[in-house]
Structure formats: C-alpha cells, structure tokens
C-alpha cells in the first residue's frame, strides 16, 4: 500500500518536471488532409524539428481557436484562406513575416502575391490555391450535371453532400440566385437561406474534414467538393468527376501565417522556406491535388498533373469564378445564425 502511494507521489513529481528538455517542435495548425506526411517527415529529417500537426475543418474554427487560446496558443503556423488573412491581420493576430528568412518567395505567381488582403505579403505567404466545385459520381448519376442549380433536382434526394463550411454553402445559394457569393446584404442572405432550405431534403451530410469520403463510401453521389479532394478521390473511385458549374466556382487561396503568439517563429520561417522549394511544392501539389502558386514548382510537375483540369483550371473554367472576401463580423453573424438554422432544420 505504501508502495502504491509512493508510486502515485512519484508520478505527480515526474509530471511536474517532464518537459524540461524538449526537442525543437513546430506546431502546425492546418486543414485536415492538407499536407502529405512525406513532407513533414522530410522536414524533420532535414532540420531535426518535430512537426505537431493539428487540424481544423473551417476558417471559423481556426480563427475562434486562435482567439480563444490567445496567449497560450502555441501554434507556430496556420493556414487561413485569404479572407481570413485580412481579418486576422487587421485584428493584430499575426506576426510579420521576416522576408529575409524566407527563401524562394520570388518563385510565387505574381498574380497571387501582393493581393489586397495583404499588400506586400507582410503577413502571409501563399501555400496552395484551389476551387470548390461539383463532384459527380458518374457511375450513379446518368444525366449531366453542369450547374449548382442542378443539385436542387429531385432525383438527388438524400444523395447530395455539402461542405461543412458556412461561407461556401451560402456562396452556392447566393450564386444560384444570381447574387455575389460575398454578399453582406441580410436580405440576400436570408433569400439564400430559404433557397438552401429547399435543398436540405436532398442533403445527406456536411463534410469538410475529407469531402471526398462520403462519395467513396457510397453515401452521396453529387454535391460540393474541393478540387484536391476530387483528385485524391479519383484514385479510388474512378467515376468521380469534378465539374465546373455554370454559375461559377468558388476560388480560394490559402496562405501560411505566423500567429502573434507563436513559440517558435524561427521554425515557422524555416518550414515556409522548406515548402517553397520547387521540388517540395511540386510534391505537395501532386500528392493532394491542389494547385501550387509556385511557378518554379509547376515546371517540375508531372504532365498528367499539370494538364489535369481539376487541379489546374483553364481560362474558361474560371469564368464567373469568385474569390471569397472578408465580409466583416456583422455579416458573419447573420450567416452564422442562418447556418445553424439550416443545419439543424429538417
């Protein structure tokens, strides 16, 4: 008995001193399925820095968590979409990126740097860009699907999947009604909500953790998907097709940012430089199917990837495409309210 009590006390004592000698760690906060394991392993091999990979499934969740943890947030690197870069920058949540420590920035597509969301890229370095379009499992869907509006077709009852992303889902609703996907008008948002409630009987599930999975698992046949997920999904399910809807796809650019309270900004800079190497950027794009903004990497891409319309859309695919922008907290709350009602309504 005494031994047991002693063991307990010992355990507590040890708990107190664990962590006195730690290897260098990089806390990477990223979307799920958004970085090949191989890249992390090679980074660790090269630098000795261990990467702790934690995931989120929406910009809102990432932002809320960073805000919530505030000073105790030990994340060294996060990957918000553009419209959250500007929001976080304005709210002083980010640390400026020291360009002198970044190698390979010049490889980036000039069209994707110096954007309004972050002039001069003081706070962000583009990682990947991509689109949200329609996925169709052609083995189960005979007729052609060409527009977002087609999802409302009765044939698809209980066979539709939407991403679990408030902005994206409302983007679709707004576009179908002919509005901008970045609308801040409460009237338009409400209309979109009503339009989307008509879709709800068809909606089987929301998924932003791995939007390809419900298609692969045979739960859904048609719906929203990110292009990279569609490319990855095709490996297992050949009949999975990526469609650019007539109303226009949703386009986004995700960038590395260093949160204000990062513990190891040094390692964060190293990681960004590591990813910016053309060879690594090419590897990422080939593995997970999203488009790299790194022009030097695009040269290295395998032809089958470089010519893949799903990963790298051509000019006609991008007609009507709309980039998501920051809509302000007030509009965000309107979206949030309808979003919750949408998801819990029957």
């Amino acid at each position: 008995m005494k031994k047991l009590a002693l063991a307990g006390a010992l355990a507590l004592g040890l708990a107190g001193c664990s962590g006195s000698e730690e290897p260098q760690v990089l806390n990477l906060y990223n979307w799920s399925e958004y970085m090949p394991q191989e890249v992390l392993d090679r980074f660790t091999e090269e630098t000795g820095i261990q990467v702790v990979y934690t995931t989120y499934d929406s910009n809102e969740a990432m932002y809320a968590r960073l805000k919530l943890l505030d000073e105790s947030a030990a994340y060294d690197l996060a990957v918000p979409s553009t419209y959250y870069v500007s929001k976080m920058r304005q709210e002083d949540l980010l640390m400026p990126i020291d360009r002198s420590k970044i190698e390979g920035f010049d490889n980036l597509d000039p069209e994707l740097v110096n954007l309004d969301v972050d002039p001069e890229n003081q706070y962000s370095v583009p990682f990947l860009w991509g689109t949200t379009g329609i996925a169709v499992d052609t083995a189960d869907v005979e007729s052609e699907v060409t527009a977002w509006a087609d999802l409302w077709d009765e044939r698809f009852e209980a066979r539709v999947m939407l991403t679990n992303d408030m902005r994206e889902v409302f983007h679709v609703g707004l576009r179908v009604l002919g509005y901008s996907g970045n609308s801040t008008d409460p009237k338009e948002i409400e209309e979109a909500y009503e339009k989307l409630t008509e879709l709800m009987p068809s909606v089987r599930t929301f998924n932003s953790d791995a939007p390809r999975m419900p298609y692969l698992e045979g739960e859904t046949d048609v719906g929203m998907i990110w292009n990279g997920e569609a490319v990855m999904g095709r490996d297992t399910l050949e009949s999975l097709e990526y469609v650019y809807p007539e109303e226009g796809i949703i386009a986004w650019l995700d960038s590395f940012v260093i949160p204000k309270n990062a513990r190891n900004p040094e390692a964060a800079h190293q990681f960004i430089s590591f990813v910016l190497q053309p060879e690594i950027s090419a590897l990422i794009s080939e593995e997970i199917g999203y488009a790299t903004p790194n022009l030097a990497a695009r040269e290295l891409l395998d032809d089958s990837v470089a010519n893949d319309r799903a990963s790298y859309p051509n000019a006609t695919d991008m007609i009507n495409a709309e980039f998501q922008t920051d809509i302000g907290d007030e509009a965000l709350q309107v979206y949030a309210k309808y979003w919750e009602m949408l998801k819990s309504g029957q």
Partner: peptide
C-alpha cells in the same frame, strides 16, 4: 459551435 466557431 457558439464557443468554438461562431464566438457567441
């Protein structure tokens, strides 16, 4: 959601 997403 209110605590970890919508921040209400």
């Amino acid at each position: 959601n209110q605590f970890l997403d919508a921040r209400n």
